[in-house]
Design a protein around this nucleic acid. Structure first.
Lengths: 132, 132
DNA sequence: ATTTAAAATGAGAATTGTTATCACTTATGG
DNA sequence: CCATAAGTGATAACAATTCTCATTTTAAAT
């Protein structure tokens, strides 16, 4: 029994705005963009809808970066990298860690339900800029 | 030029207490244990010292679990799992993802400085308990 | 040993990201 | 079109963490 979500204009704006991102914003920076399209949407509505979209598997929440959560419209298996310099959060393809779940379950006897790999360092753009 | 840390009794108590853990506590639960040994240590002192120990590479901070940070006295490369049921945070050996840094740097052109894998699910003990 | 400057402390206020409350509005199915 | 469940905006509340500041402790140099 999947709990029904009613339509809401605000949720649509929020999801569409998130989909415009290639990198993955915090609630705060997403809120700025959302407000450009609908200046009445409240911050509580943003958080409520982000949580709801996460619970329904439509988007993913990325925890693990030092400050606040980031949100990702890509729900395929992949991992994340934050640049220490520009603070952008990029996708990392999942083939960098083949067979990770299976190996971990074998090794530990734990049941793995969720996982993410969180990398940080310097992205390609910033490396190039630094060497100039 | 490594910044010198002066000795402090409080820091010693905090580090020693952290070392008693097999699983990895939050600041809050570590604080309870620390207060049993020295009931005068302030919460600010705990946080200040944990951050300082992290900056000096003596302990590691584990972000990425839904609520608060956990702290780990084991600085060897390894990963982390939180049980959804008992909320304990366990170590996962790093050989579940061989050559992860190298492959990721190759694939992306990014410079990787830090990384962690965050798993969640049900630990072995809780699986056993559940099947009773 | 005494002095001195930097480092650390305790207590509590402040800050930040996020969630809860509540009166009101909108969506949906009969 | 009515009833009811779901969603909203505004703002208060919250929890984790950091900051402030007057006082104390450490280290190292006299």
């Amino acid at each position: 029994m999947v709990k029904m979500m009613n339509y809401s204009r605000q949720r649509e704006v929020i999801l569409n705005t998130l989909k415009e991102y290639v990198v993955h914003p915090t609630a705060e920076s997403l809120y700025e963009k959302v407000r450009e399209k609908d200046s009445k949407i409240s911050l509580a509505t943003l958080y409520r809808n982000l949580n709801q979209l996460v619970e329904n598997g439509i988007i993913k929440k990325i925890d693990g970066f030092y400050d606040s959560a980031h949100f990702d419209h890509n729900t395929h298996e992949h991992y994340h990298f934050m640049c220490r310099n520009c603070k952008r959060v990029f996708d990392i393809p999942s083939n960098v860690a083949p067979d990770l779940i299976h190996k971990t379950e074998e090794t530990t006897g734990f049941l793995i339900e969720n996982h993410d790999i969180i990398f940080s360092g310097i992205c390609k753009d910033c490396r190039n800029d630094m060497s100039n």
